[in-house]
Amino acid sequence: MPLRALHTLTDIAPENWDRLLPDDQPFLRHAFLLSLEESHSVRPEAGWRSEHLVWQEAGKITAAIPGYRKHNSSGEYVFDHGWADACQRSGIRYYPKWLGAIPFSPVGGARLLGDAMAARQLLVDLPDYLAQQGLSGAHINFTDAPADALLREQPQWLERLGCQYHWLNHGYGDFQDFLATLMSRKRKQMRKEREQVAESGFTFRWYQGDELTETQWDFIYTCYANTYAVRGQRPYLTRHFFSLLAARMPEQIRVVIASLGEQPVAMAFYLIDSHTLYGRYWGCLAEFNHLHFETCFYQGMEYAIAHGLQRFDAGAQGEHKLVRGFEPQLTRSWHQLQHPGLREAVGQFLNEERAGVRAWAVEARESLPFRRGD
């Protein structure tokens, strides 16, 4: 078959994978995905088995989807636990399933990589692959517009909408320019939050990936892991992942470390491409008033403005972002379910859910803090 699976990215040369990518988004790079594998952040014991689907013609890979065989629904950020529970009650097998996504990263972007015609043929042949492999279905999360167009052509795929909140740089010269676009009460609130952090003695320093020592990476990981520990959970990523990533793609890593006096107390880990700053992980050693907002939001906004970036994606969820100028953005995922009854029931649910998500996005836009036109 032209469609085949790669169970590790070591089976394809980095340059052959990366030439399929449409842009420089870091999450799709061979280096990022391989670091997840080799650090054992992605591993079968945690419910993730690498299963990247590729389309090969005349010995050359012309299209691909980064993917995984899943035995649970953790770390996906498109929540289908209810579907799995309903299957269990009805005696329908839901796992294993196949997932086309970037693990632990609710970031929109290309999912159907390479030549569009080859990607279309991959989608056409995918149901046969699922049946042969005994998979309950396929799910492709956080797609971009070209992938949406190809998936919409296939009637068996069900569309699901979500909503995130992104900060957009409308040509601001500095942070004060942004504040000037806000209603007075919101502008004063942000200024007060930032002033309280500054008056408490916090300082902030930005680093590129290759500017950080292993001791600093130890601190970064401690902060990251602590965000899970306080909830009694195990972190998705291992410490080794950060060292691998720093060695392989340091130019796309940014970290801001917050210090109180000489003591580092918090950090935010970002990735970057030519137009977007992606806020991924945050952590602190103790709780401080407004420090999260400053480290994760305001520092990122200032960085985006200073470096001419168009967008700041600070992560999934978080309606509290609205009052700080993060604008609602619809996200899409696509689902192909092999069981006819399950497909029909989920299809009906998604029809209602899409209407609700669209209505919420409109309502959320009304909550933005920007000054209204005269």
Rank of each mutant, 00 (worst) to 15 (best):
F178T: 07
F178I: 10
F178A: 12
F178P: 08
L179N: 10
L179P: 12
L179M: 11
L179W: 07
A180E: 12
A180G: 14
A180Q: 12
A180N: 13
T181L: 14
T181S: 15
T181G: 15
T181K: 14
T181F: 12
L182R: 06
L182E: 07
L182T: 04
M183F: 15
M183V: 15
M183E: 15
M183G: 15
S184T: 10
R185H: 13
R185W: 14
R185C: 10
R185V: 09
R185S: 12
R185T: 13
R185M: 10
R185E: 14
K186Q: 12
K186N: 08
K186A: 08
R187V: 05
R187W: 07
R187E: 11
R187N: 13
R187F: 07
K188M: 13
K188D: 14
K188G: 11
K188C: 11
K188N: 14
Q189S: 12
Q189C: 13
Q189R: 12
Q189G: 11
Q189W: 13
M190K: 11
M190P: 14
M190A: 12
M190D: 13
R191P: 10
R191Q: 11
R191T: 10
R191K: 13
K192Y: 14
K192V: 10
K192Q: 14
K192W: 14
K192T: 13
E193Y: 05
E193I: 03
E193L: 06
R194I: 05
R194F: 04
E195L: 10
E195F: 07
E195R: 11
Q196C: 07
Q196A: 14
Q196I: 05
Q196L: 05
Q196D: 09
Q196G: 12
Q196M: 04
V197C: 06
V197I: 03
V197P: 00
A198C: 06
A198P: 06
A198R: 04
A198M: 03
A198W: 01
E199Y: 04
E199P: 03
E199M: 04
E199L: 05
S200Q: 10
G201V: 01
G201R: 02
G201F: 01
G201L: 01
G201H: 00
G201W: 00
F202H: 02
F202C: 05
F202Q: 04
F202V: 02
T203L: 04
T203Y: 05
T203M: 08
T203D: 05
F204D: 04
F204W: 02
F204V: 03
F204N: 03
R205K: 06
R205T: 07
R205A: 04
R205Q: 06
R205E: 05
W206A: 00
W206Y: 06
W206K: 00
W206I: 00
Q208D: 07
Q208W: 06
Q208S: 09
Q208G: 09
Q208H: 09
Q208K: 07
Q208M: 07
G209R: 00
G209V: 00
G209Q: 02
G209T: 02
D210E: 04
D210F: 00
D210S: 02
E211A: 01
E211T: 03
E211W: 00
E211G: 01
L212H: 05
L212R: 02
L212V: 02
T213M: 07
T213A: 03
T213E: 04
E214D: 09
E214K: 07
E214L: 05
E214T: 02
E214Y: 09
